[in-house]
Computed example of a mutant assay.
Amino acid sequence: MKIDELKKALTDLAGDAAAEIIVEDAPMAEYTSFRAGGKARLMVSPRDAEQLKDMLRVLSESGCRYMIFGNGSNILVKDSGYDGVMVRIGKGLDNIRREGENLICGSGALMSAVARAALEESLTGFEFASGIPGSIGGAVFMNAGAYGGELRDILAGARLISKDGKNERYVTGRELDMGYRHTILHETGDVVVEAELKLRKGDQKEIKEEMSQLMKRRNSKQPVNFPSAGSFFKRPEGYFAGKLIQDAGLKGLVVGGAQVSELHSGFIINKGGATASDILQLAEIIQARVYDESGVRLEMEVRIIG
Rank of each mutant, 00 (worst) to 15 (best):
S80L: 03
S265V: 09
D292W: 08
M142G: 06
L93G: 06
V224M: 14
L253K: 14
I96C: 03
G148W: 03
K201C: 05
D83W: 07
K271Y: 01
I286V: 15
K198R: 13
S73T: 13
L253H: 12
V255F: 05
P133Q: 06
Y147C: 03
L123N: 02
R47N: 11
G165F: 07
G173V: 02
G173F: 01
E99D: 15
Y170G: 03
I279V: 11
G148K: 04
D83L: 13
M43G: 09
A109Q: 05
R98V: 11
N270P: 06
V58G: 10
N74Q: 08
F232K: 15
A288R: 13
A156N: 10
D247Y: 08
Q51Y: 06
A17G: 07
K221R: 13
A14V: 10
M111F: 00
K271R: 15
A283R: 04
S277H: 04
I207Q: 04
L13N: 11
F267N: 05
I268H: 04
A146L: 04
R88M: 10
R57T: 14
R200K: 15
Q51L: 13
E120H: 09
S162Q: 07
I286L: 13
G106C: 11
K166D: 11
I132V: 09
E206A: 15
R41T: 15
E168C: 11
L103E: 03
K53G: 08
A36E: 02
S228R: 05
R181A: 09
L263H: 06
K208G: 12
M178G: 05
E120A: 15
D164E: 11
S277G: 10
M43S: 11
V254H: 14
V44W: 00
V77K: 05
G165S: 13
G90E: 08
A144I: 01
Y239A: 15
T32R: 06
D83E: 15
Y66D: 09
G131P: 03
G257S: 08
V44S: 08
G157A: 11
A36S: 14
L123V: 06
L160V: 06
E120R: 14
I207W: 00
E20K: 14
L42Q: 05
L250F: 05
I269D: 02
V193L: 06
G157I: 00
K216S: 14
G137H: 01
A241C: 09
E99I: 08
K234W: 05
D94I: 02
S220Q: 12
